[in-house]
């Protein structure tokens, strides 16, 4: 069963639409976690139903609220566009057609945080649930907030996954699920490690010290 009881009786959220508001806040929030904090610039591309009805549902407000770190049940989320100006987050919205492979409620973020750059595509798949399906043009699986997740960007070469899982096993952290995807041999690869336990900053730093790891980010479990 992919759905849990509080996916159905929930989320607790600010209206008006679970897919277009609550799911959108979560997409923004995950994009924020993936770039490691408040972006300085965000180009947000809206696809499908998102492109058609985003104004009425406040999807723009919701996506930016997530980038600012608000949760879907935070009543302050509604003032996100003004808040973004104050916090110097430069955002702009673009309508796009990503093609039939993507869910009708899809947003693509092109983010900058000072010198860092990141591209994230996420889908809002109903009842406030989301999945991140692409990071830096690499297809990803199992990033859906059902677990705490460690996302590792690394160079595609032997031994890195073993080093990362070694770090976790010495700290007695259980991996519930793991997937690796890459764009091509020897290029950037992404590991998604869904885990059962909490993870300290120290562990994340240890993972980032593994040679050929570009970055590692922790995503929270959604409730």
């Amino acid at each position: 069963m992919n759905w849990s009881i509080f996916d159905i009786v929930g989320p607790v959220m600010i209206g008006p639409s679970s897919s277009h508001t609550s799911g959108a806040v979560r997409l923004g929030l995950f994009a924020r976690y993936l770039i490691g904090g408040l972006p300085t610039k965000a180009d947000i591309y809206l696809h499908g139903s998102y492109a058609q009805v985003y104004k009425g549902h406040g999807t723009d407000i919701a996506l930016v609220a997530g980038l600012l770190g608000h949760s879907p049940d935070d009543e302050n989320a509604i003032n996100s566009l003004e808040e973004a100006k104050k916090l110097k987050l430069q955002y702009s919205f673009h309508l796009t057609d990503l093609g039939a492979d993507y869910h009708p409620n899809t947003a693509k973020f092109e983010l900058r945080r000072d010198d860092e750059k990141l591209e994230v595509i996420g889908e809002s798949i109903g009842a406030g649930n989301i999945q991140i399906v692409e990071i830096n043009k690499i297809r990803t699986n199992c990033i859906d907030g059902k677990y705490r997740a460690i996302i590792v960007s690394q160079l595609d070469k032997p031994g890195i996954i073993a080093s990362v899982s070694d770090i976790l096993s010495t700290k007695k952290i259980n991996i519930a699920q793991m997937t690796v995807s890459r764009n091509g041999r020897g290029k950037e690869a992404l590991s998604v490690l869904n885990i059962d336990n909490g993870v300290s900053q120290e562990i994340m730093e240890a993972i980032e010290r593994v040679p050929a790891v570009n970055w590692a980010k922790l995503l929270p479990k959604l409730t």
Binding site: D7, I8, V9, G10, P11, V12, M13, I14, G15, P16, S17, S18, S19, T21, S22, G58, D73, E75, I78, G126, A127, G128
Partner: peptide, 18 residues
């Protein structure tokens, strides 16, 4: 009506059907 004015609700299963 609370949902339509950006109020706090519980989606069940969605906000539009809350």
């Amino acid at each position: 009506e609370q949902n339509a004015r950006f109020g706090r609700i519980v989606a069940l299963p969605t906000a539009g059907s809350a």
